[in-house]
Design a protein around this nucleic acid. Sequence first.
DNA 1: ATGGGCATGTAACGAGTTACATGATTTT
DNA 2: AAAATCATGTAACTCGTTACATGCCCAT
Lengths: 183, 183
Amino acid sequence: MKSLPTTSYLVLGLLSWDRPMSGYEIRKWAEQMRFFYWSPAQSQIYGELNRLAERGWVTASEVAQDGRPDKRVFSITPAGQAELSRWLAEDPAGPTIVKNGTALKLYFGHATTPETLLRLLHEHLAELDEMLGQTAIVQEFLEADEGTIYPSLVVEWVYLQLEAERSAARQMLARLQAGLQST
Amino acid sequence: MKSLPTTSYLVLGLLSWDRPMSGYEIRKWAEQMRFFYWSPAQSQIYGELNRLAERGWVTASEVAQDGRPDKRVFSITPAGQAELSRWLAEDPAGPTIVKNGTALKLYFGHATTPETLLRLLHEHLAELDEMLGQTAIVQEFLEADEGTIYPSLVVEWVYLQLEAERSAARQMLARLQAGLQST
DNA sequence: ATGGGCATGTAACGAGTTACATGATTTT
DNA sequence: AAAATCATGTAACTCGTTACATGCCCAT
């Protein structure tokens, strides 16, 4: 039996702190993780949950709610915990994938104006600032909880990376501007 | 008419230095770009080239070769150049996507042993070292050519990012080891 | 009353990967 | 003699997104 894609383990992992969650809640959590592991679309999460349930790694319990549609709350099973541990220890993490559209466009910079490139970099820097703001919020949110040492460690890691990316992007901007004046 | 996915523009962009290339050559170039924009599988490149040809953005010319199978060499058309410029200036670059399997696993660190986590980080660091080595090679390769200022600028950018990631990953390692001793 | 949040799901599509198939040339 | 490189392509599949569909609750 082949290992499921990483996305499945992301979902499984979120249930591994023994806090049962609905698909909706999982989606929100996953969104906070997008800075280091791009999160799946909402519709996919429900699919993954069904697949995990088929394998017996999670169980669903219907929770009737007054008024609102029934909530399906998922919990991890012992088999699920075992599978998560196996994945962590045995499956290779694989190379880190980056898709930086701004860098790609800069690579083809000869095909546009320097002004466009400067704008692109400014937009990228604005995006980084926004992300940095959000990591601060996430960090606060995590520190309220107990037993989230690893998540806050990772958010700290993200923070360092984002800061470094910002300083690198600024250097690119400076280089571009220097190049503009010298010609 | 909707814009094609970014991957198409990656292929189109590679032809925009007016150096006609075969699918095979494009694949090799694209591989060098994977540090900032994950490159598509070989089979996809041929598909993209056909799609670009259908739109009249590239043209194929059959080059017969002694012995070897015929080479199909692609060139960008004026319409293709125009479309690339349009894409650069008008289409939003979109958020940067990162998929860092090591960070994801560390996030779920409670479900495994500290030893596994240390190993994972060591492997990640080894991967970073390898990537750094390769950027040096790519940089050398680019500096030999004229008119590759933008590509070498981007490789410089990648270099800065990789170095920053390495130092961040080392900090995570140190934190983990510190945590191990205090408990 | 309007919009946003909670809550779940399906259908259709498009993107992208893996594996297969072929075959000559060049390097080790 | 074997392995790597050059060279192209198809078929099957899986992953993942977008858009749609539904409907209640709560705040403004």
